[in-house]
């Protein structure tokens, strides 16, 4: 594969129970492309965490997964409230999720740390009141 392949998804902010559809679809697509299972697992979990974040905090958003010869890039963009203190948000256990979300097993303050854990690179670009864009990269052929 010499050219990159992009998968685009709209993440529905209303429907919490259907969150994960984009991630599961990404998993299927990557499997079809013959990507290694451990990479697929890393990418799809990081993507799911991002999806959940967009549903909890931002009323949805958009996700792009770009598969190139040597890497996979994931770009998650929303027009939510933004992250006031990114360093704090990156700390394991820190969360601003409401109790209704916690009772479903989310909101443990592990979403962003998990994304970082599974990706080789991750940058967060966020402006309060404007939105958040997260770019993540995992390298293939390591």
């Amino acid at each position: 594969m010499s050219e990159s392949l992009t998968f685009h998804y709209d993440v529905d902010g209303e429907d919490f129970t259907s969150a994960g559809q984009a991630s599961v679809q990404v998993k299927k697509n990557l499997r079809r492309l013959g990507i290694a299972p451990d990479i697929i697992r890393q990418v799809s979990i990081a993507m799911y965490e991002g999806e959940i974040n967009m549903v909890i905090h931002a009323g949805g958003g958009e996700a792009d997964v770009i598969v190139s010869e040597d890497k996979i890039d994931i770009i998650l963009a929303d027009h939510g409230p933004g992250i006031a203190d990114i360093e704090l948000a990156m700390q394991e256990g820190y969360s601003t999720a409401p109790d209704s979300v916690r009772s479903l097993g989310f909101g443990a303050g592990m979403g962003l740390p998990n994304m970082k854990r599974y990706m080789d690179e991750m940058t967060i670009d966020s402006t309060v009141g404007v939105g958040t864009t997260i770019k993540m990269t995992v390298y293939l052929n390591r």
Binding site: A19, D38, I45, G109, R117
Partner: peptide
């Protein structure tokens, strides 16, 4: 759920009391 996704390994048995629809994803 995020702890599970962060710490469980592929092919593990996952024991939980959480039974909402998100466990499938």
């Amino acid at each position: 759920l995020s702890w599970v996704m962060g710490r469980a390994e592929a092919d593990n048995v996952w024991i939980t009391i959480m039974s909402n629809i998100n466990i499938i994803a």
